[in-house]
Computed example of a mutant assay.
Amino acid sequence: MAITAGLVKELREITGAGMMDCKKALTETNGDIDAAIEYLRKNGQAKAEKKAGRIAAEGIVRTVVKDDKVAAIVEVNSETDFVAKNADFQAFVEAVAAQAAETDAADIDAFLAEAWKEDGSKTVKEALVEKIAVIGENLNIRRFEKVQTDGCVVSYIHGGGRIGVLVMADTDVVNDEIRTCLKNVAMQVAAMYPKYVSRAEVSQEYMDHEKEILLAQAKKENPEKPENIIEKMIIGRLNKELKEICLLDQVYVQDSDLTVAKYVDKVAKENNANVTVTKFIRFETGEGLEKKVDDFAAEVAAQAGM
Rank of each mutant, 00 (worst) to 15 (best):
N77A: 13
E231K: 02
D68Q: 05
K195Y: 12
T276G: 02
Q188N: 13
A273T: 08
D255T: 01
F82M: 11
I141M: 03
E13K: 05
Y252N: 06
T27C: 09
A52Y: 06
E79K: 14
E118R: 14
Y196K: 00
A17F: 02
A105V: 02
A2C: 05
I157N: 12
I132T: 08
T27E: 13
L128Y: 07
A115M: 13
I37C: 10
A56H: 04
E177I: 06
R142N: 10
S203D: 08
T123E: 12
A25Y: 10
E94C: 00
F296D: 05
A35Q: 07
E299W: 00
Y156K: 01
E49T: 15
V70W: 01
D295M: 06
G59N: 09
R162F: 02
K211M: 02
A110V: 07
N77V: 05
N228F: 14
I132S: 00
K183H: 05
K23I: 14
W116F: 15
D255Q: 03
N239I: 10
F296Q: 11
T276D: 05
R143E: 08
L258T: 13
K269A: 15
A84K: 01
N86A: 08
M20N: 08
E130G: 10
D81N: 10
A35G: 11
V293Y: 11
V96E: 10
